[in-house]
């Protein structure tokens, strides 16, 4: 564990907490994409299949449980909690899951390190996580109405990805045999998807104005 990895995990945790705070206390999920949240459930469910069979540390297992539990509860809130569900931008959040999942399934079947069930599912989760934010970014672009919490949620998620890249660079130079092309390339793609959002986020922050995306 290095400082970049820890910072990445903590920003990831913070992003989930910000989203839960918005949904649980304000009872609103306006501007939040249910499609993206459902994709995250699939990402965590397929990545942490080994949660009971391979033990790394208490920290790892605990974080896995937190990410699984929080993503499930966010989806539950958005689908079944009456007050929260009313605030969901259903008409705008039209991205098709299969449009993202199918290419990721095919890619995981073609490009992986080992052709075993667990390994292909794990690789699929990496590919899917890289693009899971797309419905959320499309929703933002469409509604263009971004409250502070939604903006902070996406900013923290992007920050988590940025820290993970620093973590990989650090590990590459400090640990022998630490080469993971699949993880790195999908992680890099994922981080690049945030670039546009980050640009406007910093612009609004610099000018001390409310975040607004161009049409």
């Amino acid at each position: 564990m290095n400082i970049f990895r820890l910072a990445g995990d903590m920003t990831h945790l913070a992003s989930v907490l910000v989203l839960l705070l918005k949904i649980h206390t304000i009872k609103s999920c306006a501007g939040v994409s249910l499609k993206t949240q459902e994709l995250y459930v699939i990402v965590f469910a397929t990545r942490y299949l080994d949660i009971f069979t391979s033990f790394v540390s208490i920290y790892n297992s605990l974080m896995k449980l937190i990410f699984l539990g929080s993503s499930f509860s966010i989806v539950w809130y958005m689908r079944y909690h009456k007050a929260v569900h009313r605030t969901y931008d259903r008409e705008q959040d039209t991205f098709r899951h299969w449009f993202l999942m199918l290419p990721c399934i095919l890619l995981a079947l073609l490009i992986h390190e080992k052709f075993t069930f667990f390994e292909v599912m794990w690789t699929f989760s990496l590919y899917l996580e890289a693009v899971a934010i797309l419905p959320q970014l499309v929703l933002l672009q469409r509604t263009r109405n971004i409250d502070n919490l939604t903006g902070q949620y996406i900013f923290l998620l992007g920050g988590y990805r940025g820290f993970y890249i620093l973590n990989w660079i650090y590990r590459y130079f400090t640990e022998p045999h630490y080469v993971h092309w699949i993880t790195w390339i999908s992680g890099l793609v994922q981080t690049l998807l945030y670039a546009d959002f980050f640009y406007y986020y910093f612009l609004s922050w610099k000018n001390n104005k409310k975040l607004q995306l161009p049409a």
Partner: peptide, 10 residues
């Protein structure tokens, strides 16, 4: 054995 250390990340 092959290094599987990417698996210790989240």
């Amino acid at each position: 054995p092959k290094d599987r250390s990417a698996k210790d990340e989240l």
